[in-house]
Design a protein around this nucleic acid. Structure first.
Length: 862
RNA sequence: GCCCAGGUGGCGGAAUUGGUAGACGCGCUGGCUUCAGGUGCCAGUGGCCGAAAGGUCGUGGAAGUUCGAGUCUUCUCCUGGGCACCA
């Protein structure tokens, strides 16, 4: 019996596609374009199952669109700058560039073994001087356009990685990569003015209809727009220079319930007080030690210290309140100072109860309502409430209306103004690191910051660097660092900071449209190819990468590198789920778990044990594949054993693409058996010769098979378009089951069966491209499938002429009627009522009501 | 604490978007094929009652709307994820 041999077929077809240049694309105004992009990988050295899933999905879309006649751009590249290369350099004394390019070569081979429909002629690596030269050119344009600036700021210093982290990159007070507790340090840094675009980036989210709602919401929350009142308290007893205290509140309607003011331990006033007051100094130091970790803040008790300073209420000169330094006020948000209204904010209430501060109700529920006890009354802002200490507007109104009234009151009386506030801060891009894109400026004692002339770009990374100690090798490389000022020629110092790698990935999608051009982009190419029609990647990039890319597209547009139409770079976004696997552990000598690789473990009905020793193995939950838990499966081994098509097929089966998928050995083997089953069926089937025209007479049973074939075309097409690959797979299973049931050898059948197998091959092309080609060739076709268009169903054939309608009695199914498609409602009703099963329930009575939904259902109500 | 998803057989998941719940796959059970099988083929597979026909219960729980609810509404329990002393 012949078997499908993936090991021979896959490399063969990969070679044929390459020889034909099947996936190389050029601009072609005559054809509609379609740009499919998967988030490009970091070249760690080996692909993992997450890559397989991501690129399998992208390839389905790319091949599908291509078969539908689109001019499909489907490129691949490498997000190649980054810390692992420097870590490797430090650990193994290998140059980061050498390490990176070796990894790229290895991963390119692995990706090619997957049989992806990529245009490899467009491959880019962000560490390539051709790429970062263009990035430097854009940086200079952005600098000239005022989108980049330098400022001295307190930064997060990662003591392990010896680098600055953006606020967004600090996770629970620790470096997001190193995990080391972050320290504070003051440095002069380069920033992109992303915060200036906060409002535009926010409002444009409304137009991203083809993005997951979840991601849109995350971006909205990240930008964090709020409207409130900013005003200044007059102070009594404050040090010189602090006559007024600026505060910001999103609930100015509660101003008449204020009982204290509070400032952040990082507030300038707190810092000024620290010098002369040991108690305050100790409190502030304690606050800084607690750090910013989630748990610490969550469990931390609300604490504060009274400064002795008083503020005057803006609406009553005789009303004075104390100023406290409190550990729950953030310096980064608003002005770093608030007024506390304990009745309507739980934190303020906890604080007031602890320190015996007054609690005054401002509003109450519309009906009834008692004074606040130990739970603050915080209704939705949209809920109407009864104001008992309102000062502006109606007694009963919503919080929203009262806030606006309070702002109007403040503006009319000159003590404050309405202010839009954003959580989003400017994007710090300076990194004190070697393996990144050099920032192309020179620092001159006389001229200040001088841009490197474009003619001198790229500013190349020096090759002769040492990684024998932590820190930035650029900083201790005199011949690279010390240069002549481009402006005055005097001795000057090159900027030794490199750019955040998020910069590299913020515009690569545009570079793919003209990857080798001497300018960052080429108007004709970005004009033709942008935007990305479908972007696919992990949810972990939902905020940073996607927000930065959206900012960058706008910055590129302002500096003339993108047309206005490409302002939102990703038309549609799909975020795929993770690949998970069970975890296996044995008991270690000290009682701790020792994680075991899946290939070390044999599963049985009762449990699992180590293959080598028979030692029992504890089976843990299926979680994201990670090296630390050893629950990883190497894609290369799977491709070696079963072939890329089997791996791809399994990845697309069962789980919806946006959800997590559990990798199981049984599942992969099932996928492999399925391909073998199709192959065997096809080989054993009797078919008419290739190219036989449709026979005039079609036997009823053969017509049924033809109908199934055309229905499957419709269903699979719809499922792929809707990103329901799991459903497309299920529909193909159903189709194969239908084909296998027919064994007739009459002429009509030979035709219907050929049509079915040919359709099967064509529909499977996006998922299992090598297998489909091999089938197609075995069916007698000389032209490869890759150059064959997507099958289009004959709507007349796919249509059911007779329908089976369920008949319910009081909502429960009691029988069914088979009718012609066009049968009218009264006829259906008559047939349904005549059913013995319906008569049995009617017991001679006439029904109260009969609902007939043509084409759907009949319900008899008695 | 806030926000967002999601709870459907032994398991992964379908359900034409208010119209036959459990498609398809995995697993399991029985049978056939095979020297053998971790291969292939056939049949069965939500619970309960029943020999069967059939009945009955059933989509985390409770109530509601409807001729009809996995789907809509309200409350509630649980799981996963994200964010945060955001004023």
């Amino acid at each position: 019996m012949s078997r499908y041999n993936a090991r021979e077929a896959e490399p063969k077809w990969q070679r044929i596609w390459e020889e034909r240049g099947a996936f190389r694309v050029e601009r072609d105004p005559a054809r509609p374009k379609y740009y499919v992009l998967e988030m490009f990988p970091y070249p760690s050295g080996r692909i993992h199952m997450g890559h397989v899933r991501n690129y399998a999905m992208g390839d389905v879309i790319a091949r599908f669109k291509r078969a539908q006649g689109y001019n499909v751009l489907h490129p691949m590249g490498w997000d190649a700058f980054g810390m692992p290369a420097e870590n490797a350099a430090m650990e193994r004394r290998v140059h980061p560039g050498e390490w990176t390019y070796q990894n790229i070569a290895a991963m390119r081979t692995q990706l090619k073994a997957m049989g992806l429909s990529l245009d490899w002629s467009r491959e880019i690596a962000t560490c390539d001087p051709d790429y970062y030269a263009q990035q430097q050119a854009m940086f200079l344009d952005m600098l000239a356009a005022g989108l980049v600036y330098r400022k001295s700021s307190v930064v997060n210093w990662d003591p392990v990685d010896q680098t600055v982290l953006a606020n967004e990159q600090v996770i629970e007070g620790c470096g997001w990569r190193s995990g080391a507790p972050v320290e504070r340090r003051e440095l002069t840094q380069w920033f992109f003015r992303i915060a200036d675009m906060a409002d535009e980036l926010l409002s444009a989210i409304d137009g991203l209809h083809k993005w997951p709602e979840k991601v849109r919401l995350m971006q909205r929350n990240w930008i964090g727009k709020s409207r409130g009142l900013q005003f200044a308290f007059e102070t009594r007893g404050a040090p010189a220079g602090f006559g007024r205290l600026e505060v910001y509140s999103t609930r100015p309607d509660t101003l008449l319930g204020a009982s204290f003011a509070a400032i952040s331990p990082d507030h300038p006033l707190a810092k000024a007080l620290e010098a002369g007051n040991p108690a305050i100094a100790e409190f502030c130091a304690e606050c800084r030690r607690v750090g910013t970790s989630e748990e610490a803040l969550e469990t931390a008790e609300k604490k504060g210290v009274d400064t002795g300073i008083r503020v005057v209420h803006p609406l009553d000169p005789t009303w004075e309140m104390p100023v406290w330094i409190a550990n729950f006020i953030l310096m980064d948000y608003g002005t770093g100072a608030i007024f506390g209204c304990p009745a309507h904010d739980q934190r303020d209430l906890d604080f007031a109860r602890k320190y015996g501060l007054p609690v005054e109700d401002v509003f109450m529920p519309r009906e009834g309502g008692a004074a606040v006890g130990n739970e603050a009354y915080v209704p939705l802002k949209s809920e109407p409430v009864r104001y008992v200490r309102g000062f502006a507007g109606d007694e009963i109104q919503t919080g929203e209306a009262a806030v606006e009234a309070a702002i109007r009151h403040a503006e009319a009386n000159g003590y404050g103004r309405g202010v839009e506030n954003y959580r989003l801060r400017d994007w710090g891009i300076s990194r004190q690191r070697y393996w990144g894109c050099p920032i192309p400026v020179v620092h001159c004692a006389a001229c200040g910051v001088v841009p490197v002339p474009k003619a001198d770009l790229p500013v190349r990374l020096p090759e002769d660097v040492e990684f024998d100690r932590p820190g930035n090798p650029l900083d201790r490389h005199p011949t690279w660092r010390d240069v002549a000022c481009p402006s005055c020629g005097a001795r000057a110092r090159r900027e030794t900071d490199t750019m955040d790698t998020f910069v590299d990935s913020s515009w690569y999608y545009a570079r793919f449209t003209a990857p080798h051009a001497a300018t960052p982009t080429v108007a004709e190419d970005v004009g033709y190819w942008m935007n990305v029609d479908q972007y696919i990647g992990g949810i972990e990039h939902a905020i940073l990468h996607l927000l930065y890319s959206r900012f960058f597209a706008r910055a590129m547009q302002r500096t003339g590198h993108l047309p206005e139409s490409a302002i939102e770079p990703f038309e549609a976004l799909f975020t795929q789920g993770m690949v998970t696997h069970e975890t296996y552990a044995t008991a270690g000598a000290d009682g701790r778990r020792v994680w075991r690789l899946p290939e070390e473990v044999e599963r049985t009905a009762e449990g699992a044990h180590l293959i080598a020793t028979g030692e029992p193995v504890e089976i843990g939950p299926s979680i994201k594949m990670s090296k630390s838990k050893k629950n990883v499966i190497d894609p290369e081994a799977i491709i070696e054993q079963f072939g890329a098509d089997t791996a791809r097929w399994f990845m697309l089966s069962d789980s919806p693409p946006e959800r997590d998928v559990e990798w199981t050995t049984a599942g992969v083997e099932g996928a492999w058996r399925f391909l073998q089953r199709i192959w065997r069926m096809m080989k054993e089937a009797e078919l008419c010769p290739v190219g036989t025209p449709v026979p005039e007479m079609i036997l009823p049973m053969a017509a049924t098979l033809r109908q199934t074939t055309h229905k499957t075309m419709l269903n699979v097409t719809r499922s792929i378009e809707g990103f329901a690959f799991n459903k497309a797979v299920a529909e193909i299973y159903t189709f194969v089951n239908a084909i296998s049931k027919e064994a007739d050898v009459t002429e009509d059948y030979l035709f219907a069966r050929r049509e079915a197998f040919e359709t099967l091959a064509r529909l499977m092309t996006p998922m299992t491209p090598h297998f489909a080609e091999e089938m197609w060739a075995a069916l007698g076709h000389a032209t490869p499938l890759v150059d064959t268009l997507w099958p289009v169903a004959d709507p007349g054939l796919a249509r059911d002429e007779r329908l089976v309608l369920p008949v319910q009695v009081n909502g429960k199914k009691r029988g069914e009627v088979e009718v012609a498609r066009e049968t009218d409602a009264p006829t259906i009703e008559g047939l349904a009522l005549a059913l013995p099963d319906v008569q049995r329930y009617l017991e001679g009575r006439s029904p109260k009501k009969v609902i007939v939904v043509p084409g759907r259902i009949v319900n008899v109500v008695i």
